[in-house]
Computed example of a mutant assay.
Amino acid sequence: MMTQTEFPYLGLKASTDPDQIAERLRCQPQVFEFFTTPADVTPAGVAHLRAMIAWVQQTTRRIVIHHPMSWHGGHVEIASDDAALQAFVEASTTALLQVARDTDTQLLLHGSYNEPAARIQAEFGSVAAGRAAVLAQLDHWRDVGGDRIMFENSISPTFPYTDPAFNAVLLAHHYRLAYDTSHTFIAAHGSNDVLAASLRQLAPAVVHYHLVDSQGLRHDSLPLGQGKIEWARVWPLLNPQATNIYEITLADQLDSTAQRESHAYLERIKQKAARS
């Protein structure tokens, strides 16, 4: 069983590119997350992903597969009136769930991304209807994926973690949640109070964290300590039974220094809290 003493983990992220994976593995991560693209869910891509998972599993057992973020130049919205996009979501999620089952790993699926309110209104008629459409999809994948699937929050109004009433609905649906700290902070317009309340409310359902800083204005994916998130407040509110990675934008995909320095930063926060 995972414990407060172990958490947070050195969690690193990479694509399925062998050079990126080799660089991460030299750092001996305790958690590894694969960033995938549509190319990774073709038959050849799935075979390559399986081989890369087997390689990582030689040293790292806690592995998350991140469902593709983009498709044909746009974000992959799981609730959409685009039939072709819906077909891609169905096929890709089904394929990656099978990989997760076969390899004893986890699949992360986004509830939404950053669809603007005007688009939501045009497509669904209202934000409430858009949320209902997202929940219907998440219910389906919860039932299909069981303990192999988790759902990540977004900046979009259709799947944020900033609304206590909506959070209560998510808890009632018994979802396994992935929590991106920066997404909540941005959706909360830079409010650490909203972030803290959200972390506290949803902690029992969170199984995986994307720990990342932000200025709270846009999707900037900053190293911890370089944004405006108050990590000394955040740290005690995290669920120590979850896993985590540091989802930091890298200037060079073959150099994970910013991810590793973020882990060192949070370790210092943890140690200071333990002494107080």
Rank of each mutant, 00 (worst) to 15 (best):
M1Y: 10
M2V: 13
T3G: 14
Q4M: 13
T5P: 02
F7C: 09
L10T: 10
L10M: 14
K13D: 05
T16G: 05
Q20E: 13
A22P: 07
E23N: 07
L25F: 09
L25V: 10
Q28F: 12
Q28T: 12
Q30K: 14
E33F: 00
T36C: 14
D40W: 02
V46F: 04
H48I: 06
L49F: 05
A51D: 12
M52F: 03
I53Q: 02
I53R: 02
A54H: 08
W55Y: 11
T60W: 02
R62Q: 14
I65V: 15
H67P: 03
P68H: 12
H72N: 11
G74E: 15
H75L: 14
D81P: 06
D82T: 08
E90G: 03
S92T: 05
S92W: 01
A95P: 09
V99Y: 08
A100D: 04
A100H: 04
L107A: 07
L107F: 08
H110E: 05
G111D: 10
S112F: 03
Y113N: 13
N114P: 00
I120Q: 09
Q121E: 11
E123K: 15
A132L: 13
A133T: 11
A133V: 10
V134P: 05
A136Y: 09
D143R: 04
D143T: 08
D143P: 03
D147V: 05
I149K: 07
M150N: 04
F151Q: 03
F151D: 03
F151C: 04
S156D: 07
F159N: 00
F159D: 00
F159V: 00
P160K: 06
P164I: 07
A165F: 10
A165T: 14
A165K: 14
L171E: 10
L171P: 02
A172H: 10
H173D: 11
H174A: 13
A178G: 05
T181D: 00
S182R: 04
F185G: 02
A188Y: 00
H189L: 01
N192K: 11
L195T: 06
A197I: 01
L199C: 07
L199E: 02
R200V: 11
L202Y: 01
P204A: 06
H208T: 02
V212W: 00
D213A: 01
L217E: 12
L217W: 00
L217Q: 13
L224Q: 03
Q226M: 11
I229L: 10
E230Y: 10
A232R: 14
R233C: 08
R233P: 04
R233I: 10
V234S: 07
W235C: 09
P236C: 07
N239K: 04
P240Y: 13
P240T: 09
Q241I: 02
E247F: 00
L250R: 10
A251E: 15
Q253H: 15
Q271L: 12
A274P: 02
R275H: 12
R275C: 11
